[in-house]
Simulated assay, not measured.
Amino acid sequence: MRLDKYLKISRLIKRRTVAKEIADQGRISINGKVAKSSTDVATNDELEIRFGNKTVTVKVVKIVETTKKEESADMYEVLRETYAQDFREIGDEK
């Protein structure tokens, strides 16, 4: 599945156009490599998404074509959240 579509369906980013813009700006990496919006996402990939002062790292748990809002969080596991302004981390390091 394309990266921009995965981000929208999983609701990590609410709109596909916004996901595409962020990816094309080089603010998303998959397994340590900068990814474009058309990059394929696979199960067990590690995504790092940089939003302004916040960086979120998630592991892709499953990929589905459609999902309900309540079930979208089952598509990924948050590994860590880092805030640039004060360098604090939320979540456990794995």
Rank of each mutant, 00 (worst) to 15 (best):
I90Y: 12
T67R: 03
T43P: 02
R11P: 07
V61K: 05
T17Q: 11
A42N: 15
Y76I: 03
K14C: 10
V41C: 06
R15Y: 06
M75N: 07
E71L: 13
S29L: 02
F87S: 13
T39D: 12
R2Q: 12
T43R: 05
K5N: 06
T66C: 09
S37M: 04
R11V: 11
K54G: 01
D92V: 13
K8I: 06
K8C: 10
S37G: 07
K62E: 15
V41R: 00
A42E: 15
D24T: 08
I49S: 04
F51L: 13
E21K: 13
G52R: 05
A23L: 01
D92Y: 09
T39Y: 07
R88W: 10
Y76D: 00
K5I: 02
G32R: 05
Y6K: 00
N44I: 05
I63Y: 01
E71K: 15
T66F: 06
D4W: 01
T66S: 15
D24A: 08
V34D: 07
N53P: 13
K94N: 11
L7R: 01
A42R: 13
I13Q: 05
V34K: 14
R2G: 05
E89Y: 07
L79A: 05
V56M: 12
A35F: 01
K20F: 02
E46T: 12
Y76A: 01
A23W: 00
I49C: 03
K62Y: 02
E93D: 13
D24Y: 07
L47P: 01
T39L: 06
R2N: 12
V78W: 00
I49T: 03
E77S: 12
R16N: 02
K59Y: 01
V78D: 00
V61N: 06
K69L: 12
M1L: 06
L7M: 05
R27Y: 09
E46I: 14
T67C: 12
V41T: 08
I49D: 08
E71R: 08
I13H: 02
T39H: 04
S72C: 10
R27H: 06
D24V: 05
L79R: 03
A73P: 03
L12I: 09
K54L: 12
Q25V: 03
R2L: 08
R50I: 09
E89R: 07
Y76C: 02
A23I: 00
Y6N: 02
V58K: 01
N31H: 09
D86M: 02
E93V: 14
D24E: 15
A73T: 14
E46N: 11
A84M: 10
K33S: 14
R11K: 06
E70I: 13
D74M: 10
L79I: 15
T67S: 14
G32I: 03
E70G: 09
K20W: 00
K69G: 11
K69D: 12
I90F: 13
F51A: 07
E71V: 05
M75A: 11
D74T: 11
R27L: 15
K69T: 13
K33N: 11
E21I: 06
A35P: 01
I90P: 04
E93R: 07
